[in-house]
């Protein structure tokens, strides 16, 4: 997994690429997410376009960020959920928990509504 991050219109966009399977790569995503949360950033989009698959470690990181932010008036949303990850979200009943958008721009836009 590789990770890039950027800020667009006040929203932190995290773009992991590859497979989120645990170990040092997954820690990178966790640590980056929490680094921004500690900087008091409130709006996050995780762009999953280039994530081939993830496992419970990846889901755990995203859900943890989601709940931490929700408890402090922040929000974490998903963009470009691929088929494999969508079916994982369905299996684990998390698809009803996350707001998911077909593009990063739509996800960012949704923070203004």
């Amino acid at each position: 997994m590789k990770l890039t991050e950027r800020e667009q219109d006040g929203v932190i966009v995290l773009e992991p690429k590859g497979k989120i399977m645990g170990g040092p790569d997954a820690s990178l995503l966790h640590d980056k997410l929490y680094e921004f949360i500690e900087q008091d950033k409130k709006k996050f989009v995780v762009d999953l376009k280039d994530v081939e698959w993830m496992n419970s470690t990846g889901l755990g990181i995203i859900i943890s960020g989601f709940t931490t932010l929700r408890n402090s008036d922040g929000k974490l949303k998903l963009a470009n959920v691929t088929e494999k990850i969508q079916s994982l979200l369905v299996i684990t009943k998390l698809q009803g928990v996350f707001e998911a958008f077909d593009s990063v721009d739509e996800a960012i836009q949704s923070f203004n509504e």
């Binding site: 419970s56 889901l59 755990g60 990181i61 859900i63 709940t67 299996i91 684990t92 009943k93």
Partner: peptide
Amino acid sequence: NPLDEANLLKDSGRGIFIVKSL
């Protein structure tokens, strides 16, 4: 069961359930 209301938003406890599903 990770689908139980009380477990749904936990950070962990989904691994074996996912394996059984896949």
